[in-house]
Write a protein that binds this DNA or RNA. Structure first.
Lengths: 237, 237
DNA sequence: AATAAACGAGGACATATGTCCTATCAGGCT
DNA sequence: AGCCTGATAGGACATATGTCCTCGTTTATT
């Protein structure tokens, strides 16, 4: 995580995402711009949270590891998603690990300002609005992801980890983890993932090249997925 | 839903559950005690929410119906769980349908007081604490329920809809929906649910009697379930 | 009362999926 | 270079699970 000293950029982002009216004025001077490179962690499961991050560029992968060591993908978060607010507010350890898929920039605020401004109604209302809207959004999807067949899950995953504007782009190890771990993330076995992947290859959606995957037909994958089950449109509403 | 005029009872519950220090004093006079009979709905999915309910006695079933008509069980909520706060705060329609499994009593507050006290910091802090703790709790389980085999899901379900203090109690149609709908709730087919049920019967956990189920061995079911995946301990922490 | 619809129980069969294994390749270390 | 480890690709087989169906029972409707 690298802090970028650029107040002008922060204000641009605030304006771009309509956060001017949302983030209380008092909090403004405590905001900072942070950058994460692909595969870099924004936070680690089980650790004490430090920041609330507003994602303003890029994409992160949110996943959780159970006590039995089973890893499961929760979702991909894009701008204007928020990371870490629940744990900071609950004063509990991080629920998930969050890593960057692509270069990520966030507007971050350290949790100590939560206590500092706890008597500020505009601030409290801001937080309350933030959390309840996010909870509402997540509740709609979290419980049913595993009802979708593996084809849908894999197609959605591949769409998420591949760059939208690149056709025939090779998925690098920075954006996509190993196939074995990928199987775990979407909740299936490596063997079955390979079967489904073979199906995608035989229909020309994907190509295997030197042990790497190349996304050939994003539109075809989008059709298989229906819609991306791992990405809810993050919106302010 | 029947309102029970009994301020003394309300105060008893507030004291019993340690809500004295949690619920702001100003809100106290707006609290009411409500009672729901088994199978009665606390709220219906898609409707505009009216109340926030603190469950102080009994158990409710929370389930959602997708656009394709697929019904899925989210969880069972026991005291001191809360119902309806997210939707009231988000000013959106109810996410789920919530019905009573056993006789339920709640301390309810109408949503209009949310606006009335929106400048009250103690109230806002109360809400923020409530929502973020619940979100933290739910995030831990919601995404993985369907990873468990149907045996675990069914055992957990049966434990939830059967009375804890009754051995050999017949599950009535008030506590438990039809087998066909039960299959839907736990995310499997009626056929497979019957298979698993047959397994439970052959090992003496459950008996079929006149088209109804009788839970014979709660401890055995608890062993199958491991722990009840549909009930997280609701705690204030 | 008669009929229709819904529910419960289970057979037959197909499909989805996981476990275990083998073979090959790639990368890292000595 | 040789060896080891880990990742990839796929075969064989078993298990989990769903679809479709039949038959009997129960409940609701006419």
């Amino acid at each position: 995580m690298k802090e970028i000293m650029d107040t002008k950029r922060i204000n641009q982002y605030l304006s771009q995402f309509g956060l001017d009216d949302v983030i209380p004025k008092e909090l403004r001077k405590h905001l900072a711009l942070y950058r994460f490179e692909p595969d870099e962690a924004l936070c680690l499961q089980g650790e004490v949270p430090q920041y609330i991050h507003f994602i303003v560029q890029g994409k992160v992968k949110v996943y959780t590891t159970s006590s039995e060591g089973r890893t499961l993908l929760i979702n991909f978060t894009i701008p204007l998603g928020v990371i870490g607010e629940i744990e900071c507010l609950s004063e509990k350890v991080n629920l998930n690990t969050v890593t960057a898929v692509f270069p990520v920039e966030t507007i971050g605020v350290h949790k100590r300002w939560l206590t500092q401004y706890e008597d500020e109604t505009s601030f409290l209302r801001f937080l309350l609005n933030l959390v309840s809207h996010k909870f509402y959004q997540k509740s709609k999807s979290l419980s049913s992801i595993l009802l979708y067949p593996v084809e849908v899950r894999l197609a959605s995953y591949l769409l998420s980890v591949s760059a939208e504007d690149e056709k025939g782009a090779e998925l690098s190890s920075l954006n996509m983890t190993s196939l074995k771990d990928t199987a775990n993330l979407i909740g299936t076995s490596y063997r079955h993932l390979n079967r489904v992947l073979q199906g995608f290859c035989s229909t020309g959606l994907v190509e295997r090249s030197k042990g790497k995957l190349v996304v050939i037909d994003r539109e075809g994958l989008t059709e298989v997925a229906g819609w991306n089950i791992y990405e809810n449109g993050e919106s302010k509403s």
